Computed example of a mutant assay.
Amino acid sequence: MGVYKDKLRGTYYVKYKNTTKRGFKTKKEAKLFENKVLRHKRFNDEYFCAVARGYLKHLEQTSKYSTYMKCQQVMEDFIIKNFPDKKISNITPQDCFEFRIKLSNSSYSTTTKNYILQKFKKVFKHAMTYNDLFSDPSVSLTSFQKTLEEDKNETVKKNTIWDENDFNQFIKYVDDNVYKVFFITLFYTGARLGEIRALTWNDFSRGKINIIKSVTSKTDHVTDNRKEEIVPTKTSSSKRRISVGSSLNEMLKDLKKQEQQKEGYNNDWFIFGGPRTLPTTSIDRKRQKAIKLSGVPFITNHGFRHSSISLWINKGVTITEVSKRVGHKNPGVTLGIYTHANINEDDKLLDILNNLQSETIKSSQDEA
């Protein structure tokens, strides 16, 4: 292998194996290509498992800890196991297709299958970016399509809301006081998850909370192995000061007294979490555990907000007041969510209509 000058054309070319690469205007360009080929040659000896773990190290440095741990689990439990002793340069499109077939026949949900497939493809993209892999054998792999049943179940989950009875049943099974107060605050304020997580003790006084900021994971900022950042609220109308109610006010005051006993406490501490925000992974784990134990319908974290909106409107609070409380730009947004969440309202209307018509028909028959 070497770099040579084409005296006839006045350019440079590189010879390697049985191939000649021509057309380099300068010797420097030709040398750069030669080095790339040499790196690729060395990389060809890398095993897939080593490259996959290299991708994991990169992910650990650039993503939040929970994202890294989730990826590490599927990488070790499924992906690497399928290519334990194979060099990455020897993996063919057919190998990738057979991997997809095996994944398709697994018992994982469609969402999990697509997550595993995505991470499998990421290994090759990582190799092309950082290890000079010439081509991606996984490029033609397509995502899995959800079944009709999965689509139906997902729609039900998104549309599920709770009334106060559902919530009261749920909260009995939250066994940690901090999380208990957290979920009560989430349900009865109607605030967004990020807004509640961002609350500090400076934001709480005289039975009210100031909502002026939120926690977002849509950032490159990494703190304590978490890819998240405190940012202003979603819109200017989201900035608000709302009452929490007498019972929740007392619960928050008691929680503050407990926190004040801890070393290093100050009012900049987060209400839920102390010196750092409450992790979403822990919130999800507590929510899912209490839902399972209580037997109430599944609900997402954002479902607490929709449930709160539905609760207030059903109790007779005006759309305008509810809109102000939850920080919507205008009442139309609030009404849209309420209408979407209460998809069974038409059944109630039909029951009322049937009763009214029944009374009308009965009256007309009596008169006859």
Score class of each variant (00 low, 15 high):
residue 189 T to M: 09
residue 189 T to F: 04
residue 190 G to E: 08
residue 192 R to G: 04
residue 192 R to E: 08
residue 192 R to I: 10
residue 192 R to N: 03
residue 195 E to Q: 08
residue 195 E to G: 06
residue 196 I to A: 04
residue 196 I to Y: 02
residue 197 R to V: 14
residue 197 R to M: 15
residue 197 R to L: 14
residue 198 A to E: 01
residue 198 A to Y: 08
residue 199 L to F: 07
residue 200 T to K: 01
residue 201 W to I: 01
residue 202 N to T: 03
residue 202 N to S: 05
residue 202 N to V: 00
residue 202 N to F: 10
residue 203 D to R: 02
residue 203 D to N: 13
residue 204 F to P: 09
residue 204 F to W: 04
residue 205 S to Q: 11
residue 205 S to M: 02
residue 205 S to E: 12
residue 205 S to W: 00
residue 208 K to I: 00
residue 208 K to T: 12
residue 209 I to E: 04
residue 209 I to Q: 04
residue 210 N to I: 10
residue 210 N to T: 11
residue 211 I to K: 04
residue 212 I to M: 07
residue 214 S to W: 03
residue 214 S to A: 11
residue 215 V to K: 00
residue 215 V to W: 04
residue 215 V to L: 13
residue 215 V to M: 10
residue 216 T to A: 03
residue 217 S to L: 02
residue 217 S to V: 12
residue 218 K to R: 13
residue 219 T to F: 04
residue 219 T to H: 08
residue 219 T to D: 06
residue 219 T to G: 03
residue 220 D to S: 13
residue 221 H to E: 11
residue 222 V to N: 04
residue 222 V to A: 00
residue 223 T to L: 09
residue 223 T to M: 03
residue 223 T to V: 15
residue 224 D to R: 07
residue 224 D to C: 01
residue 225 N to I: 00
residue 225 N to L: 14
residue 225 N to C: 02
residue 226 R to H: 12
residue 226 R to F: 12
residue 229 E to F: 01
residue 231 V to N: 06
residue 231 V to P: 01
residue 231 V to F: 01
residue 231 V to C: 08
residue 233 T to A: 14
residue 234 K to A: 10
residue 236 S to W: 07
residue 237 S to W: 01
residue 238 S to F: 07
residue 238 S to V: 09
residue 239 K to Y: 12
residue 239 K to N: 14
residue 239 K to S: 11
residue 240 R to G: 08
residue 240 R to Q: 10
residue 240 R to F: 11
residue 240 R to V: 09
residue 242 I to T: 10
residue 242 I to H: 05
residue 243 S to D: 15
residue 244 V to T: 12
residue 245 G to I: 08
residue 245 G to S: 08
residue 245 G to N: 10
residue 245 G to K: 02
residue 245 G to M: 08
residue 246 S to Y: 13
residue 246 S to I: 14
residue 246 S to N: 13
